[in-house]
Amino acid sequence: EDTPTSDDLEQFAKQFKQRRIKLGFTQADVGLALGTLYGNVFSQTTICRFEALQLSFKNMCKLKPLLNKWLEEADSS
């Protein structure tokens, strides 16, 4: 899998936040949902820092596919 560039991550974080708000989920909701879906719960702080691009590049890269999958799930339900 290609490592995203920081531009990709920035773009995704922006879109993710917009979609999340549009779908009516809080950052805490997302963190809990990730726990339900993938077995690891993320704190509201982590989601907040992802959206604000304040996590390390490595952590951003790790979270992106999970959040992307969550968006697909949320969109289809």
Rank of each mutant, 00 (worst) to 15 (best):
F42P: 04
P4G: 12
T5K: 11
K22S: 08
G39L: 01
E51F: 00
K62I: 11
M60Q: 03
F50Y: 04
A13S: 06
R19I: 07
E51G: 01
R20L: 01
E51Q: 01
Q18R: 10
K62G: 07
L71S: 06
A52I: 02
K58P: 09
G31Y: 06
W70R: 02
A52T: 12
R49H: 05
R20T: 00
S77F: 08
E73M: 07
E10T: 09
L37D: 09
L53N: 12
Q44H: 11
L9K: 02
Q54L: 05
S77P: 13
K64V: 08
L23P: 00
K17L: 02
T46C: 05
S76Y: 08
M60I: 00
L23M: 14
Q54F: 00
P65K: 06
G39E: 06
L37F: 11
E10N: 06
T45C: 07
N68C: 09
Q18L: 08
L32G: 15
D29T: 04
L55G: 02
A52C: 08
A28D: 07
D2W: 05
L67A: 03
D75M: 12
I21R: 07
Q15I: 10
I21E: 12
N68M: 05
M60S: 04
Q54R: 08
S43Q: 07
K69R: 13
N59W: 10
K17H: 05
T5V: 09
D29E: 11
S56D: 09
E10M: 13
F50P: 01
K22I: 06
R20W: 00
M60L: 05
L71A: 03
N59G: 08
A52E: 14
K14Y: 04
K22D: 14
C48N: 10
I21D: 03
K58C: 05
C48W: 09
C61H: 08
G35S: 14
F50I: 02
D75V: 08
T5M: 11
Q18G: 06
L9P: 03
P4Y: 09
K69D: 06
L9E: 01
K58R: 10
N40G: 14
G31T: 09
P65W: 07
T3S: 11
N40D: 13
Y38W: 05
L55K: 04
I47T: 02
K62L: 12
A33E: 07
A28F: 03
K22A: 13
E72T: 10
W70G: 01
K69N: 05
G35K: 14
S76H: 13
L9W: 04
W70E: 01
S77W: 09
D75L: 08
D2T: 14
R20C: 00
P4T: 15
E72N: 09
S6T: 15
T26Q: 02
N68W: 13
Q54W: 04
V30Q: 00
K14H: 01
S76E: 13
L67D: 01
F12T: 04
Q18C: 08
G24L: 01
S6A: 15
I47S: 01
Q44R: 10
K22R: 11
A28S: 10
C48Q: 15
G31W: 06
V41I: 08
E72D: 13
S6N: 11
D7Q: 15
E10Y: 14
A74S: 07
L67M: 13
V30P: 03
E1W: 07
G35E: 10
L55N: 02
E72C: 11
C48M: 15
L53C: 14
F50W: 01
F12N: 03
F16C: 01
G39Q: 07
Q54N: 09
R49M: 08
E73L: 12
L71T: 00
S6L: 14
L23Q: 05
P65T: 10
T26H: 05
T36V: 08
E10C: 12
C48I: 08
C61S: 07
Q27I: 06
D29Q: 11
K14D: 12
L9T: 05
N68T: 14
A13N: 00
D7G: 15
L32S: 07
I21C: 06
G31F: 04
D8M: 11
L37R: 12
Q18M: 10
G39P: 12
L53K: 10
F50S: 01
L34N: 01
T45H: 10
T26I: 02
G35P: 02
V30A: 06
D75G: 11
A28H: 09
G24Y: 00
E51P: 01
F12H: 00
N59F: 12
S6D: 09
K17R: 11
A33H: 13
D75W: 10
A28I: 07
T3Q: 10
Q11L: 11
F50R: 00
V41F: 07
D75C: 08
G35T: 14
F42C: 12
Q11W: 07
A74D: 06
G39W: 01
L63H: 03
G39S: 05
D29M: 05
K22T: 08
A33F: 05
D7L: 04
Q18T: 12
F25V: 06
F12D: 03
P4Q: 14
A13R: 03
L34C: 06
G31S: 14
A74Q: 11
P65D: 09
Y38C: 10
K17Y: 04
D8T: 09
T46W: 05
N40L: 07
S76L: 09
Q18K: 14
L9Y: 03
T36D: 10
K62V: 10
T5G: 11
F50L: 03
K64Q: 10
P65Y: 15
K64C: 03
Q11M: 14
Q44S: 13
F42W: 09
T45A: 11
L55P: 02
K58N: 14
V41M: 13
C61L: 13
F50T: 02
S43E: 11
K64H: 11
S77E: 12
D7S: 14
L37E: 12
L66N: 03
N40S: 13
Y38R: 06
L53F: 10
F16S: 01
T36W: 05
A28Y: 09
L67R: 00
K62R: 13
R19H: 11
N59V: 14
C48T: 10
N40R: 13
K62E: 13
R49Y: 03
K64A: 10
K64Y: 12
L34T: 01
C48H: 12
S77G: 15
A33W: 12
F50G: 01
F25A: 07
A33T: 09
F57R: 13
G24Q: 03
L55V: 03
N68I: 07
F12M: 06
K64E: 05
Q15G: 08
K14R: 10
S77A: 15
